[in-house]
Every structure is written in structure tokens, then in C-alpha cells.
Amino acid sequence: MKPFEYVKPNTLAEAISALDAGGEDARALSGGTDLIVQMRAGRNVVGNVIDVKGVTETNVISHSKKDGLTIGSSVPCYRIYNDEGIKKTYAGLVDSVSIIGGTGIQGRASLGGNLCNAAPSGDGIQSLIILGAVANVEGPNGARQIATEDFCTAPGQNALNPGELLVSLSVPEPESNAGAHYLRFIPRNEMDIAVVGVGASVVLDAEKKSIVSARISLASVAPTPLFVEAAGDALKGTEIASDSVEKAAIFAQEAARPIDDMRGTADYRLHLVGVLTKRALKVAIERAENQ
């Protein structure tokens, strides 16, 4: 690896000023499971590594009915899926964080890093999108919020300005009768990058007969994670017993813009979008029914 400067600030203000001072050359470090790999491969030339794990705000998990869930950007996956409150209320999120890498990776990898890395295949990003999460960002010019579906702008590119830090992620408290599921397809059973991933969330009416609202998001079928509003809209107001799930799958396929690469051909990926959208919705609906 090429030499660089390493600092570990203790406060948010210090972290922001270090990032700001480093400019283009500086990068925040959370779990390092993307950043260190990329730096070692020479794909990411970094002069200043700012380890943000010492900042209190990036390490919190807080959860209340009123404010929903807040997860610090550096909180590693294992802390998320071991949290009883999250397990109970945010099953869709647990789906994602428990499949990122293996147990060793999950000891470091963060949801914030997954989002900032902005890979089209990022498993964590999809769950954030379907759960309507927002990114809490702070920089030299103050704080702002970015909807997670707007956060990734191109492969490896995000909406942060130079000097800005992702502090945490806020996930709203789910409505009653809501359910969510994320699943991906990989050739092995673990340790793989999604060939295609689909996240789906639904809210059912009081009778649990029809769908009030739904969100669908796709991994690895476009340059960024793909929030498919049309597919969710297609489900609005439809009965769960109807063929609306099939229709949503077709909308998802229409939105997908996959390419051929070594992980799968475009045709195969389109096929998988259909299969996985139906599977994701089925589980999301079941979870909502069991609420």
C-alpha cells in the first residue's frame, strides 16, 4: 500500500476539519473493508486517512418509537444484527447486515461505509432505501439530510461534498402492518457479491388484505442502487391475493438496466430481477401479516 497520513479525531468537529483540510486527498475510514482493499489495489489513492470510529456520534445506536432508529455511520454489522430492538422491528435491515461478507468482515464493516462506498451491489443500501432511511450529513457548512435513494450518484460516487461526513442513518419507525425483506442472489451461499439483489417493503391495511404502500429497490442492475418507484406504485391499493406481485416484478424488470459482466449476463440478471422481486415481496408481505 502507498504511504499516507493517519489520524483518529475524537470529536465530530475535529473529524470534519481534518476531512476539510485534506480535501480531495482525504478519506474517512470506518471498517476499512472497502477502503483498505481499494487503496491496496491502487484503485483509490489517498493521502490522508481520517479514522472516524473515535467520534461518539458515528458509534451510536438509538431507538425510540417517536424518533425511530438512528445508527452511527461506523457501527459495524454485528452490532446491528445483535441489537434486540433492531431484530424485532427492522428485520429487513438485519437481512442485509447479516449477509455482508463473513463473520470477520461483519466485525468491521459498517452500514455507513456500505452506503458511502456507493457500489451498485451494496446490500445494506437497499434496505436503507426500502425502509425510507435518511443520511445525516455534517460538513464545514453545517448539517443536512439526504434521502438514501438519492445518496449514490455513480459507481463509487456519492452525494457528499468535500469535507462532509456521514454521521448517522435515521430509519423511521415502521407503520403498523409493515414488513420488509432484502434478498440477493449469489452463486455461493456466502462471501459473494450480489448478482442481483432486491429489497421490498410493504404496508398493509388494517385487515391485512391489501397493500397501502410499497417500496422496491434493486442491486447490481444499474450504475447505482436502483429505487423503483413505479414497481411500488403498482402495488398500491391492490389486494395481496391478486397478481399484483407479478406486475410489480415486471415493473422492476422494466426499470433494471443490467450489463454483461463476469458475474452474470444482462439477460440472466433481468430474469433474476423478476424471480427475486416476487420472492422479496412474498416474504415482506408475510412479515407484514405476522405483525
Binding site: P187, R188, N189, E190, M262
Partner: peptide
């Protein structure tokens, strides 16, 4: 039988020279 292969592009450059994409079985497989 199931997953391992060198994937080359048209220029003869291997596309998967790592354990992530040269998929050897894990304990879960």
C-alpha cells in the same frame, strides 16, 4: 463442477483473479 473458472475478456485479461470471484466452495456450500 459448479463455479470455478478463469473468466477472460477478449484481450486475454483474467476478470476474476481473486477469491471473491474465483468462487471456491465455502463451508456453507
Amino acid at each position: 463442477a459448479l463455479n470455478e473458472e478463469y473468466v477472460f475478456n477478449d484481450e486475454g485479461v483474467m476478470q476474476n483473479p481473486g477469491f471473491l470471484d474465483y468462487r471456491m466452495p465455502t463451508s456453507l456450500d
